[in-house]
Amino acid sequence: MTYLGVPPKGRRRTDLVIAGVLLVVGGLASGLSRERQSRVEAIVRGTALYPFLQIHRASAERMQIAARASRLQAERDSLVQVASRYRVLAGQALALRSDAGLDSLRLGSVSAAEVYPGRPRVGDPNVFVLQGAGLGDLDFPVGVFTGAGLVGVARGPYGRGVRGEFWTHTDFRVSVITEGLETGEGGIRGMVRPTRREDEQPVLLLDGAPFQTDIPPGTVLVTTGIAGVYPPGIPVGTVRALADSEAGWMKSYIVEPAVRPEDAGVVLVWQRPDLPEIFFPDPEGTGADSLSDLVNEPDSATALAPGP
């Protein structure tokens, strides 16, 4: 009997036992860390949901192919312009570094990947999954961007792909510097984080800009590359307006993001270069003269954690 009427009492007990077991399993699943949840999701996406995801991919490509082609053409044209402008500068920089006896610049490389965003309402639209070749040996966290600007950050492996967060995620932070707005110290620096007003699209907020300096609307903010998570010089957004003055000594600005999550179909994942051996002066007279020496010296006040 399944359709009408009341089930026998023995079956009721079985149903309650099943419900209890599911409650326990569901409770355990709720307590899983994000990494473990990602592993389970990746298995499900790679098996039961695989045909559906292939359909989504194929239909998205089919629908966007014309728009993507014209966008890529425009992006290519602007990149050619930028590359031709900086080719001379790059040559000069190499020559100067060579004269100074420095190594060549370590810029790292990039891998292209497709973005599968979390769904709005029922899922988390601030996270994404990346699929693509060459994502195996990443050193997380690492920046994700397009030709137009910064998209977010890759946080960890996700099956054969990578999971990450868009700039709209509450945990997102990036250190930026103004481009083309020179001050005595070479540009205004600050920290950018997402902000969202009710019923409005999320935007970015530049925090920590010095009070005595104004950043005019339209100024482009690019990554500084500090901490090695994001490559330097990637556009983050454009200053839109002054948001707030904090405690009379700092200002905040509303920043229009360079890339909105819905516009990020194919992205580039940065593969940061191997860090060179860093040498430090020896102010304490400990005899430690390199990063590895300092790390191996636990009592040293200047010891640094390895890695970016």
Partner: peptide, 16 residues
Amino acid sequence: LLEASMALGPLGPTML
């Protein structure tokens, strides 16, 4: 489980 994996939503709560 399928829905949470597809939408990248919270796994346990969606199943529950």
